[in-house]
Design a protein around this nucleic acid. Sequence first.
DNA 1: GCATTAATTGGTC
DNA 2: GACCAATTAATGC
Length: 232
Amino acid sequence: MECLNCKNTNCLISKNATLPEIHELLEKKHKFRVLKGQDVIIEGAPVHGIYFVFKGKVKIFKTGLLGKEQINRFAQDGDIIGHRGFGAGQYHKIGAMAMENIVLCSFSSVELLKVLKTIPSLTFDFMSFYSEELNRSETKVRKFAQMTVREKVIDALLYINRKFGQTSGQLNFQLSRKQMADFTGTTDEQVTRVFSTLKKEKLILSNGKKIGINDIEVLKKEINEHNYFLDL
DNA sequence: GCATTAATTGGTC
DNA sequence: GACCAATTAATGC
């Protein structure tokens, strides 16, 4: 019953692991490693279950026309992956790839559905999560429509900082310009340009892939003044 | 150390 | 603000 002792306290399963009704599900959990660069979910693949990140970083994306990639979000320890395909859709509409060597926990849809019908607190946690996801999604649509490239890049930097944090003045997650562009919906050249102007303004530090946020408050203020939420 | 990839910069539409 | 091209920096083998 290792979910009881899991350090990922934000995990919905871990939160409800003390309930006796969930024990059967926990017994059937599959835990496995995925190497850096390998697929966690292939776009269009049939849904068999739902994944939780035990350890590591994962990108969730969708491939558009001409192979253009839109990164929807990043997941790390305790986060859910593949929840949209769960329940309703039969096929995953997104792809997920390991950004480093990771460990996943997986539960089959059938088993999870069984316990969701018997454990209201777990179902409620899932419902709250889906609700928040929808909120984030709507916010992201608005940001894409209304933010300038500079604002979107700043927003992305703050997101990385919120989610992964900084140690000794450097973000704990190194993304290439290309990945940053795929995340913000622009091009790698634009990201480079915004980075270098932010650097000149002393708002960030950048040394190749190593990026550090110098003045979080000023950056926050810049997008706050435009009435955007900071909770994506 | 060399080869491939990523980042930067300038220019055009 | 995207796309293209040329140069330079960084990284993998």
